[in-house]
Nucleic acid binder design. Structure first.
Lengths: 330, 330
DNA sequence: CCACGATATGAAATCGGTATCACATACTGT
DNA sequence: ACAGTATGTGATACCGATTTCATATCGTGG
């Protein structure tokens, strides 16, 4: 059933039906007639037909590198909260860390399918930049910084710096680092730089032998810890770029009878929920993931309304969460 | 730019352009012309316009009670994997455990916005049933069973029964239970029944004083454990309906110097990633969440193609994962 | 040489809505 | 009483694609 059949059934004009669902510039008796016919027939207007004319999709495209990650799903929850209230739905694309899918999703979102895009990218290539430039709807980037776009990001450098400094302040002599993909500016590069700065300020040298690069998983953290501890390096502190990596590292230490924090301190970033209940409760840095989602969504919303050309970068700060994994007294 | 402007620019007819993007019943030279013009202009066809005529949205509606939950995001990952390959995108609705939003999402998906629906419901009301009956596209339910619909679910009863039995086989005398919302047939009712059956079979009685009902969170598990252990009940085993609840319970025991598994055994369900790295590694039951997502997606896909009237229920089995939290010898 | 199916083509109808427009009516304040 | 505004109305053009249909061209077997 389409609008004109329904209008006939309800005994009103097509325009009246359209107005009923939109501005509501309509007499009471017609509203009643339509409401009654609605119950009788179960008619629902077609969304795509509306979109063709009105250009409004009430859809927000969200591009995620992964679904089953605590940090990402917390961001998404924030986004969903804001847009849910505003009557928008989320069109989610999971790129599974595949750049090609990230690109093809951007292509997809150019087909007038969404009113705005939120991108949680891991790495930016030139192809990203050129596609983003072609975008016809507002875009907000969360978790990374990109010039010329609205961004919400974390102080990754500061978080890593502070956590490392905390551990160094307890008399650590041979710090080690398990980082993430260095092409990832935020979680890879910035966190590494924060670590390096703190180490340098403590008068120690950053030895590449004490640095490993892991994937974003517990398993990978386990493997990299094994490498760090399988030779004569004997680190007395491991700073991990994420809590997942830290959990994996801790598992390795536990299995090998290395005591945390007495023999080795461990610190992470992310404040995952499981950190509190780990074998040794994990010292970590709380990043405001959900807030990032909320603020990013609000940014997008305001850009969709005003389409201003001003692009701003919102950097969220962090909170150190100290638990037992760094609790050794100096 | 629309299709006719673009057709003029490319020097071909409107039909030719449409055919280029669809059946491809087109001469080579025209394909070349169009390809060239495409690069020149950056034209992309409007998806909603296409949908009005062709009725195909290439969208799957997915209704979730929560986003930041490990089990749910694993299901979603499975769904996303299958539909990604088939060129579908996911329209995600997060109901945040609010029945009203579950209902309104179903309403939303009636507006010809999706080609199929996957529902991860927690509780079914009559309103659910009547709305589902009005649905004009195929629906698959994951995690629950509902007569007359395609479902993929877990053997919740069996999982709870086996885990409880495992603990009871080690000489437990005063078992306790922290369950989930009893209105939730799968995670609430069935898991409780599994627990009760195992207890009864062991010749013990199920005492309501030893049973608590928690929310799906660590914090709630902590609180309920506190209640169980703050009086003279002295349970020597706690079976928790989810790993999150178990983690919270374990935290309480740890803070109060109660040894796991020597004083109290703990078991959970879900095989969360953090279970391995908990204070005491958690014995749990692996449920095939991702597989559920994959199989549910395949079911929906085949129903979308054939629209058969046969509805089937696929129950996935489980694997016991025994770790230290139940490692006490008899 | 002609009939015939396969391939190819563009004009126009169509999908199901919304936006515009010209016009009707009711309520103000002066 | 009357101008001016706010409210209410239905016919119709329009959005941007797909699909239908009538027709054209080609190779090929009889």
């Amino acid at each position: 059933m389409n609008i004109s059949e329904f209008a006939k059934e309800a005994g009103v004009s097509v325009s009246a039906v359209s107005r009923y669902f939109n501005d509501g510039y309509l007499a009471e008796d017609k509203k009643e007639k339509i409401k009654a016919a609605l119950e009788r027939t179960g008619y629902v207007p077609s969304y795509s037909a509306r979109t063709v004319r009105s250009k409004v999709t009430k859809l927000i495209g969200v591009i995620l590198p992964k679904l089953s990650s605590e940090s990402i799903s917390r961001v998404t929850e924030g986004i969903s909260e804001v847009f849910g209230k505003e009557g928008f739905e989320l069109l989610l694309v999971n790129t599974a860390n595949d750049y090609n899918r990230e690109i093809s999703s951007l292509e997809l979102f150019r087909q007038n399918r969404v009113d705005g895009v939120i991108l949680l990218a891991s790495v930016f290539t030139d192809l990203h930049r050129s596609l983003l430039a072609k975008m016809r709807v507002p875009v907000v980037i969360i978790g990374q910084q990109l010039k010329g776009y609205n961004c919400v990001c974390h102080n990754d450098f500061g978080a890593a710096y502070s956590m490392t400094k905390l551990m160094l302040s307890k008399g650590v002599k041979r710090p080690a680092f398990i980082g993430a993909n260095p092409d990832d500016k935020a979680a890879g590069e910035d966190r590494r730089k924060g670590y390096e700065r703190a180490v340098a300020e403590a008068g120690l040298t950053v030895d590449p032998k004490y640095c490993e690069t892991a994937k974003f998983s517990m398993e990978s953290g386990y493997e990299k810890a094994k490498r760090l501890f399988s030779n004569r390096l004997k680190p007395d502190c491991v700073f991990c770029a994420t809590d997942n990596i830290a959990a994996g590292a801790m598992l390795y230490l536990r299995e090998n009878g290395i005591s945390v924090p007495n023999d080795v301190m461990i610190g992470g970033i992310g404040d995952s929920r499981f950190g509190r209940v780990l074998y040794v409760p994990l010292s970590t840095v709380h990043l405001h993931y959900k807030t990032a989602g909320i603020e990013g969504a609000k940014m997008l919303l305001s850009e969709m309304k005003s389409s201003s050309q001003v692009h701003r970068i919102l950097q969220l700060e962090y909170d150190i969460v100290e638990r037992e994994s760094t609790a050794k007294e100096n």
